[in-house]
Amino acid sequence: MIRKVVANADLALDGLADGMTLMVGGFGLCGIPENLIAALRLRGSRNLTCIANNAGVDGFGLGLLLESRQIRKMISSYVGENDEFERQMLSGELEVELIPQGTLAERCRAAGAGIPAFFTPAGVGTEVAEGKEVRLFHGKPYLMELAFDADFALVKAWKGDEAGNLIFKGTARNFNPMMAMAGRITVAEVEELVPAGMLDPNAIHVPGIFVHRIFQGAHYQKRIEQRTVRPKNTPL
């Protein structure tokens, strides 16, 4: 077994330098690598390009790295929940590339699958199509989109083992598996790290080959953005 375990988030980011491109897993605040984001803030790396579906909220998630001005560019699909983000974008301090969510996911997947480019119908006829090759298949137009190239992928899983195998929970899976596959160096933080042999090989979502470093995270806040409930004893 090839051991992937590192002691903590700080060591897991070894080699991460200014100006690098990072993928950061999560959808909203669901399934984000909380420990790695906190460690990255302490590390102080700057001029980062972040590929992440969203930009966190003020004071949490990637919002922490926006606050400390460590991010130069965001590549995201939806960024609506963050005042500091909006301020930096409108003032031109932050470069923002908005792309369709399925295209974002597939550009990660392609990178992790050794596919340099693919064609998708998303964005045909919109400003997303500007400057991109359009090709007809079966009479319908598609845009050519390129695989991402990320120096680091920072992902979060529910369980992982010493061999780097990952299992996710609920909708916290989202972008994490494809980003794990895509990073030149993939770092996974998990809520529960177990010895090899403790996870059922049938249940693995991301095989350890894609994960270079793994550690058990601590102090998970797992904040909820929109707490929606129904009172007990009400019918559906």
């Binding site: 959808f27 909203g28 605040l29 669901c30 399934g31 929940e81 529910w158 929970k169 609920g170 909708t171 916290a172 797992k222 904040r223 909820i224 953005e225 929109q226 707490r227 929606t228 409930v229 129904r230 009172p231 007990k232």
Partner: peptide
Amino acid sequence: FPFEGEEDADLINAGKQT
């Protein structure tokens, strides 16, 4: 939506609602 007290941060919809 879940009953009060049964929200799970790992179970949301695309609107980020539990």
